[in-house]
Amino acid sequence: MIKHHLHSEILLSYAAGNSSPSESLIVASHITSCSKCRRDVETFEKLGGKLLEISNSVEVDSSSLDNIMSRINNDDYSIDSSDVLGTSDIFKNIPVVLQKYLPDGDSLTENWKKGIGGIKYFDIDLGQSNKNTRARMLSIPPGKKLPNHGHEAQELTLVIHGGFSDENGSYDAGDVAIEDENNSHTPISDPKEGCVCLVVYEGKLKFKGLFGPILNFLKI
C-alpha cells in the first residue's frame, strides 16, 4: 500500500508534457505501482484532450493529406515486441520504464559504481540538456544512516526495494519522498533489506554531517 505520493503539480507537468526527462522517469515509475497518482495523471490528460477539442480548427495544407497517405502506403512499421522487458530476474519488481535505463549483470547492482560505506550507485543517462537535473540509482546496505543533508532544490526519491525512514516517516517500495531547499533529513535504510531507490534531483545535495565534505566531493 503506497503511503507517500507525488505532489499534484508534478503530475500535472508530466501530463502536460513539460517535466524534465528525469522527473518524467520518476513519475512514470511511481504511477506504475500507484493507481491513485496514475488516475490523477489520466484526469490531467483528459483535460489536455479537452483543450485540444476546443482549439480552433486551422486549415490544413492541401498537400498534407497526400503526404500522409503516401507515407502510410510505404510504411513498414510493426510494433516491436522484443523490447518488452521484465523477464530477467535481476529486474524483478522494477518498473519496465526504469529497467530500460539500467545496466545488465548477474545481480542488479553488479555494474554499478562503488561509493563509500557499501553504497553503490548508477547514474542514468537521459541525454539531458540540463545537467543540473539528474537521475541516480542508489543501493544502500541495511541499517545505514546517511549524514544529515539539505538540498539546493527539489529532490524526489522513489523506493524500489526495501525502504528507509527519516524525520518525516517511513518509506517502502513505491513510496516517494519529496525534499526541497527548505528541509534537511537524516535517512536510515531498512535494517533488514537496505534500500534500492531512484533519486532525481536538481542541484547538488548539501551534506552537513561529519562525512559531508567527502560525500559532497564524491557527489553521492
Binding site: G49, K50, L52, V96, G127
Partner: peptide
C-alpha cells in the same frame, strides 16, 4: 481527444525539445 492529446504531446517533446520522455509502459506486468 485524450488519446490524440497524448500523441501530440509526445511528438512535440520528440521533435521540438529533442528530449527523451520516459513514460509509463501500459503493458508493464507490475
Amino acid at each position: 481527444s485524450t488519446w490524440l492529446f497524448t500523441i501530440a504531446r509526445n511528438k512535440r517533446i520528440d521533435m521540438l525539445r529533442k528530449e527523451i520522455r520516459p513514460q509509463l509502459d501500459p503493458m508493464d506486468p507490475m
